[in-house]
């Protein structure tokens, strides 16, 4: 887990993204190695979600490259990325509100062969026993925490090599945040590489191996998560001390 032994699983190089005339991402580069938890922290509007959405293929970069598993994937549509083993658990959860919990999970395995469904579902229910209890419930009626679990479970259903999580702690009570982060760590131990975007820098840095700090479209700092946690600038700006 220390020095990257081989080709990184995800390599982003010199990425520029525009929203119309707004230059949202100004040439960022980052890497995620197999087995790592990497976090991307920064203030609201720094461009963290835009970065994830671009890697996932929902947005097209104006410039720069994204390579996944050693293959260039820039401009590949989002619907194809999941077949390559990259899954995004989006900001605001975006579960299918009118479908049941089970149907949501089924849709998560849309990209996988049908005979995997049951074992994947069992794996997800292993991480989130609560979802099993709520299996037949309409997803829109779940609590915020349960919806977050469902969004993560749904993303896990595609058996991703890399799971990107966008603000999983948003709007959740502290106890739930801790639970969610514990599960992220468990999913990582079970073999899923994680790229985590968070405003809750404290939590994110506590579970990550490495971290990148983003400010207004640029990466301003990067390094070992533990070291960043002790860095004075990071402490002042993001950890409130």
């Amino acid at each position: 887990m220390s020095e990257s032994p081989k080709l990184p699983l995800l390599k982003v190089n010199g990425l520029h993204v525009y929203y119309g005339a707004i230059h949202a991402i100004k040439g960022i580069s980052l890497e995620v190695n197999e087995g790592e938890i990497v976090t991307l922290i920064g203030a609201n509007g720094a461009g963290k979600s835009t970065t994830l959405n671009t890697i996932a293929g929902l947005l097209k970069p104006r410039q720069g490259t994204v390579a996944f598993g050693g293959m260039p994937v820039g401009g590949t549509g989002a619907s194809k990325m999941v077949y390559k083993g990259l899954s995004l658990c989006p900001e605001g959860r975006r579960i299918f509100q009118q479908m049941t919990v089970k149907e949501n999970l089924e849709m998560g395995s849309f990209s996988r062969p049908k005979d995997e469904l049951e074992s994947s579902m069992a794996q997800v229910y292993g991480f989130f026993p609560r979802l099993k209890e709520r299996e037949k419930q309409i997803a829109g009626t779940l609590s915020g925490g349960e919806q977050q679990m469902l969004a993560m479970g749904r993303a896990l259903m595609s058996k991703p090599r890399l799971m990107m999580l966008d603000e999983p702690s948003m709007g959740l009570a502290p106890i739930l945040v801790e639970q969610i982060f514990e599960i992220i760590r468990e999913m990582n131990r079970a073999g899923t590489t994680i790229l985590l975007v968070e405003q809750n820098a404290q939590m994110a840095l506590s579970i990550a191996n490495r971290a990148y700090v983003m400010e207004t479209g640029r990466i301003t700092m990067e390094g070992n998560a533990r070291e960043l946690m002790n860095d004075d600038n990071v402490r002042k700006a993001y950890l409130g001390s």
């Binding site: 989002a78 619907s79 009118q98 479908m99």
Partner: peptide
């Protein structure tokens, strides 16, 4: 089912691998 997903949230549907 893919139709229902697209109907609810086109972006999320894409993330599932739905064309």
């Amino acid at each position: 089912k893919a139709m229902r997903c697209v109907s609810e949230d086109r972006g999320a549907a894409e993330l599932m691998g739905i064309n």
